[in-house]
Design a protein around this nucleic acid. Structure first.
Lengths: 152, 152
DNA sequence: GACGATTATTAGCCTTGTCTAATATTTGGC
DNA sequence: GCCAAATATTAGACAAGGCTAATAATCGTC
């Protein structure tokens, strides 16, 4: 053990290696990263199911910009984590947990996107930045974004 | 440098796997992630040098919330990429490239942070969210953030 | 129903980034 | 100057996420 200090940072997750307040922020970002891919996948799967009635790996691969084997590996992890169900050579379905996560993500994405557009950004840049930002905004920030986007 | 996207248009440069416009956004996010750790490190190293006169691995580890061996491995990569110089058992120095990147990151961080504060966020949440957001805002968005933060 | 094209999966490799445990070096107190 | 403590590094494991190449299954068309 290297650090056995004081002061767990208030907002953070479950891990203990504080010793510096900023460390909490960095750990939070790393934590967010671990969930990011899963969130993007379930969000995309929900969209595909809505738009086409099913989510096939080949379409996920095209939309995500990765190869089918990468999709397969990630889908295995999502299934292991209880977010999707799948059968070999069949398309993908969301579990209740997956669907809830997808809706949550869509909500956040929508707020961030509307906020950026309201700020005056062009549609393409807004979409691009929203994709990166949406996983890193707290509920508090999201509330402020929503208020700004909806103000008259 | 890393973020130079004044052009929103087509997924730049040399990659071949378009087929969907959204794919570009996801690839951009993955690209950003590859640089994120390097950016956080050089920014932190610059801060440590400014505050204490030198950047020691043990302090970097404490601030980043990781163990010293993780720091060592990352520092090797930063040295390989020409952002820092180091000698065994000595503290770390930024190259010109590293210093330039650090300044760029500090500028972005500062703008995002001031923007969030101006929006009405508390200091702690603002710092936390800025840490996550700063790597994912385009120059265009940053310009809008700066304008909002500085408006009278 | 068979066959070629499409799609999905498997196998295997690479890189990052995290960790612990063990070792090496430097530093500071005496 | 010596020795213990602090610090740095190395070694080695593991998980994630990306890829290519090869194989397997399904689908569409005849």
């Amino acid at each position: 053990m290297v650090h056995d200090d004081l002061q767990p940072s208030p907002p953070a997750a479950s891990d203990e290696r504080p010793s510096d307040p900023r460390a909490g922020a960095f750990q939070g970002v790393r934590e967010a990263h671990r969930n990011e891919l899963a969130e993007d996948y379930v969000e995309l799967i929900a969209e595909l199911i809505h738009a086409r009635g099913e989510a096939r790996p080949v379409d996920i691969a095209a939309k995500m910009g990765v190869t089918p084997p990468s999709v397969a590996k990630t889908l295995d992890r999502l299934a292991r984590d209880g977010l999707i169900t799948r059968a070999r050579y069949r398309s993908v379905f969301l579990t209740d947990a997956g669907r809830a996560l997808a809706e949550e993500c869509q909500r956040r994405h929508d707020i961030v996107l509307r906020f950026l557009l309201r700020l005056g950004l062009d549609a393409e840049t807004a979409e691009h930045d929203a994709e990166g930002i949406e996983h890193h905004v707290s509920e508090r920030t999201l509330a402020l974004f929503a208020a700004f986007a909806d103000r008259s």
